[in-house]
Amino acid sequence: MKTKQLFLLLFLFCSLVQAQKRLPKISVKSFNENNLDLNLQSMEQVLIISFWATWCEPCIKELNAFNKNLSYLEEELNSKLIAISTDDSRTVSRIIPMVSGNSWDFEVYLDTNQKIKRALNIIDIPHTLVVFQNKIVYEHTGYLNGDEDELFKKIVEINNNEF
């Protein structure tokens, strides 16, 4: 009897862990003060949000990999990639040269006070979210070469209504 109760408790716990988190009502600002409502954007298409900083080497590698596959992400997977910099006021001046120097073609937004990062309970970067219809359907922290392939598979599942 105790085994069945333990199994049921374990099953319920795993179900809760797998439950999708909702994206809180958030908008982000770009350098030119344009706002983007993340909730609205995620209702229209799959939204990939990459949290990064100029001093984070794995972040730069991940964003370079995303940029290399940007046309695949946007055109074939019908998704939108945005990068949210968590650089603070001391390092924010490095963002534009970094974006230009790497020829990144995706939109970059700012979270200099880390309000968004805290709202989403993100501890480490790089941290990537895949959001669809205001639900966070995939999260990944860190970056190793090839991690983007798992993200691409997840987006295919979402587009095929398999999530």
Rank of each mutant, 00 (worst) to 15 (best):
A83C: 08
W104S: 07
I123Y: 14
E57Q: 15
I48K: 08
N67F: 09
I95E: 06
I125W: 08
K68Y: 15
A83L: 01
S103C: 09
I49V: 10
T54R: 05
S50H: 15
I49P: 05
H127Q: 11
K117P: 08
I125F: 03
N78Q: 13
A65P: 12
S93N: 14
N78R: 07
D105C: 09
L110R: 00
F106D: 01
I84F: 02
T112M: 11
L77E: 11
I116E: 07
L47T: 06
Y72C: 01
E107S: 14
P126D: 09
P97Y: 03
Q114H: 08
V92P: 10
E57T: 09
L77K: 13
C56F: 03
T112K: 02
S71R: 03
A65Y: 13
V92T: 08
I48T: 07
E74G: 00
S89G: 06
F66E: 11
S103K: 15
F106K: 03
Q114P: 06
S85H: 03
V99C: 08
R118Q: 13
E74N: 13
A53L: 02
E74A: 04
S50R: 12
E57H: 11
S71D: 13
A65H: 12
L47A: 04
Y72A: 09
V92Y: 07
V108E: 04
T86F: 00
S103D: 13
L73V: 02
R90P: 03
L120Y: 01
I49Q: 07
I116W: 08
I95W: 03
L120F: 08
K115P: 05
L70T: 01
I96K: 15
L77S: 08
T54W: 09
I123V: 14
C56W: 02
I122Y: 05
D105M: 14
E75N: 13
I60H: 09
N102S: 09
Q45N: 14
E57C: 06
M98W: 10
A83N: 03
P97V: 03
N64E: 13
N64M: 00
E107F: 12
N102Y: 14
E62D: 11
Y109T: 00
I123S: 15
I116M: 10
I122V: 06
N113H: 15
N102L: 05
A53N: 02
V108R: 01
W52R: 04
L63C: 10
V46S: 15
